[in-house]
């Protein structure tokens, strides 16, 4: 990842290993290879690479993973503050959007 790592120890990713059935889904959907399977159970190997996209949470049938997902976007967060809503990149009014 040639230096493209964001802040350490901030993400909200949690894994309850007791619930994991080793289905591999989290290792498939994660765009940053955060998970690995060790002894038939998922393990968070690279926590700081997590970008909180929420794909693992959404695709974990056993609900073993939880993460507060959302847009990691300063403009989106400012948008949310100004409108009193959750951070949102839904900036269709100005056409400024990801």
């Amino acid at each position: 990842m040639n230096g493209l790592v964001y802040l350490s120890n901030v993400v909200t990713l949690e894994l309850d290993q007791a619930k994991c059935n080793g289905c591999l889904m989290c290792t498939i959907v994660c765009p940053h290879n955060v998970f690995e399977i060790v002894g038939k159970k998922a393990v968070i190997m690279k926590r700081d690479l997590c970008m909180e996209c929420g794909a693992c949470d959404k695709n974990c049938r056993e609900h073993a993973i939880s993460v507060r997902s959302g847009v990691g976007c300063a403009a989106g967060i400012i948008n949310g503050i100004l409108r009193g809503t959750e951070p949102s990149c839904d900036c269709s009014s100005s056409g400024n959007c990801c």
Partner: peptide
């Protein structure tokens, strides 16, 4: 530059919020 976080593929919401709190 901080606003570019929205275009990247690796910044998390929690991270950006933490950064903004002092930076903004």
């Amino acid at each position: 530059a901080m606003n570019f976080t929205g275009s990247t593929t690796f910044t998390s919401l929690s991270g950006v919020q933490k950064e903004m709190k002092t930076a903004l």
